[in-house]
């Protein structure tokens, strides 16, 4: 009769929460009606992290990393700047999944992210440093106003680490993160704000967030005909 199953279940959990004492279950596997591990999607259309100058840089940069072409949409069209904005404003931006204390040695690529900056701090420090470099190199112009070829030249200089930035920012580290985050925004589930209309999935033929493909395990060489679906569905769920 109870809303939660498993009466006389004597307890809860030890789920890695700091300071939470380990607890013991008896009776039945605990289960709470209506509870779910829902992914933390974003809503609205407003930018909440980037300043207008930062946004202008990001829109110009990501559209050179993934430019629009006949095969698929560009990164701006796919909503990547909005995705980046909300990721940097949230737990990812704060580096909650990173060890950010020292020592800050240079490290090898295999050792992963070595910066003292959280991702939000890295973007915040790197973009003005890049704009400063661009202004000094291209007669005071902003990155977004450069010709595509010059933008590519700057991005390549960042990628190789050849460009030295002020403010203790390692240009190659920032480029690597920007490229990775741009891919994530382009290809991740639309609930996070990028991959608008699942266009990236349509482009590569990915059917999306299906639980499994059990019924396809023995069907080799066939194309899975499912239209892509995200965590929150697809147009076919609502079309009147």
């Amino acid at each position: 009769m109870a809303g939660t199953a498993g009466a006389a279940v004597a307890a809860a959990r030890h789920d890695g929460m700091l300071g939470g004492p380990p607890q013991t279950f008896t009776g039945a596997v605990p289960w709470q009606e209506g509870a779910a591990d829902a992914p933390p999607g974003v809503s609205g259309t407003d930018f909440i992290f980037f300043t207008s100058a930062e946004r202008a840089f990001i829109e110009a940069a990501v559209d050179r990393l993934i430019p629009p072409d006949p095969v698929g949409p560009g990164a701006v069209e796919a909503g990547v700047p909005f995705f980046l904005d909300h990721q940097l404003a949230g737990q990812f931006g704060q580096g909650q999944h990173y060890f950010l204390a020292g020592p800050w040695s240079k490290g090898t690529p295999q050792q992963g992210y070595q910066s003292r900056f959280s991702p939000a701090q890295l973007y915040r420090a790197a973009i003005p440093a890049i704009e400063k470099y661009v202004a000094a190199t291209f007669n005071g112009a902003a990155f977004s106003k450069l010709a595509a070829a010059d933008q590519d030249k700057v991005l390549k200089g960042l990628e190789s680490g050849a460009i030295n930035l002020d403010g203790g920012v390692d240009s190659a580290t920032f480029f690597a993160m920007l490229l990775q985050n741009t891919r994530e925004g382009y290809l991740s589930d639309p609930i996070y704000g990028g991959n608008k209309d699942m266009a990236a999935w349509k482009m590569i033929g990915f059917p999306g967030a299906h639980y499994d493909y059990k019924e396809w395990v023995t069907r080799h060489g066939e194309r899975v005909p499912y239209p892509p679906v995200g965590f929150k569905g697809r147009p076919g769920w609502t079309e009147r």
Partner: peptide, 17 residues
Amino acid sequence: RLGLQATHYTANSGDQG
């Protein structure tokens, strides 16, 4: 009536904050 207008996370959703 079931109070499910907002998402209720499970006891194990440690990374949902």
